[in-house]
């Protein structure tokens, strides 16, 4: 049966008080993560990263170097995990596929006329199918924010459902581009639309618009996931992307996931960080807690 936009199924009439959200988020930020839990948390963060390059100037060389880094985060230190995935443009998927070989690091590809999404349904579907054919395990689509803001929620819903179908076996992450939705009420509504239309993951941002993955926005999306799970028993993944560049902020995100959704979400099957510079900060923090010495960026590779 074809899914259609049905607001009555959603809790998207949920009102959100932004000041209350800010207070709640501030409280997560007072959690103190020390010693073993810090180490364990940082390992988890590394393993949840979608190492990302999404630039007009991306080249095979750049992508290959990043793919190597994805598998070899800091080889001088044994026992570190790989990142979860690399995230590239569709045109770079085959390069990444080759570079990653039989590694279990997944390939995520943006599609649907990323980042603006201002194109036709046909082109978006073709874009998606191409990325999947090239070997993408995961598709990061963008929603049509213009349509959303114009109140055409059915259009947004149907588009997501159509892309989901085009994904086949690939998992679908739906980027809301929350920085363009402006209010948390919109973020919540867009989350509900995406989830009900078939998203496997919901994702905050393209990384091209500020503000991106603020904790307020991530909190709001996690609550949407929580409500959907409570209603249906179905787990949806979450990917904050853009703006999370420090280990501390990443750990605070994990605290949120743990306290809202619980431990089952604490794996890269259900939670990802879209980031490029986060990995090195996490590595530096890890090495600091191993050695007790504050670290220098010079000792950590930048690919």
């Amino acid at each position: 049966m074809k899914k259609t936009y049905n607001p009555s199924l959603m809790l998207s009439n949920t009102r959100i008080d932004k000041v209350g959200v800010e207070e709640r988020v501030a409280r997560f930020q007072t959690r103190s993560i020390k010693n073993e839990s810090k180490k364990q948390g940082l390992h988890m963060v590394l393993n949840m990263i979608d190492l990302t390059t999404l630039e007009g100037k991306d080249t095979p060389g750049k992508v290959q170097q990043m793919c190597y880094k994805a598998q070899h985060l800091h080889d001088v230190h044994p026992g570190l995990p790989t990142v979860a995935a690399v995230c590239v443009y569709p045109s770079m998927v085959s390069i990444a596929r080759k570079a990653l070989g039989n590694s279990s690091v997944k390939i995520a590809s943006v599609s649907t006329a990323f980042p603006s999404g201002q194109s036709t349904r046909e082109i978006k579907l073709a874009d998606t199918k191409f990325a999947v054919e090239q070997g993408a395990d995961e598709i990061d689509m963008v929603i049509s924010r213009g349509k959303f803001l114009a109140g055409e929620y059915s259009f947004v819903f149907d588009e997501i459902a159509a892309i989901k179908e085009a994904c086949g076996k690939a998992r679908l992450k739906v980027i809301l581009e929350t920085g363009e939705l402006c209010t948390l009420d919109h973020v919540r509504m867009a989350s509900d639309i995406a989830i009900h239309a078939g998203a496997d993951f919901i994702k905050t941002s393209t990384g091209k618009i500020q503000p991106a993955a603020t904790m307020q926005v991530t909190y709001t999306m996690l609550m949407a996931i929580k409500d959907y799970y409570d209603q249906t028993g179905i787990m949806i993944g979450m990917k904050p992307a853009g703006g999370i560049s420090t280990a501390k902020l990443a750990l605070h995100n994990l605290v949120m996931v743990k306290e809202i959704l619980g431990n089952p979400w604490l794996s890269n099957e259900w939670f990802r960080f879209g980031a490029s510079s986060l990995a090195n900060d996490v590595l530096m923090q890890l090495m600091k807690s191993e050695s007790g010495l504050y670290q220098s960026p010079d000792y950590f590779s930048i690919d």
């Binding site: 008080d17 000041v19 402006c182 500020q210 503000p211 603020t214 307020q216």
Partner: peptide, 8 residues
């Protein structure tokens, strides 16, 4: 509460 509009 007073909502601070936008994040920027």
């Amino acid at each position: 509460p007073i909502e601070q509009i936008g994040g920027a």
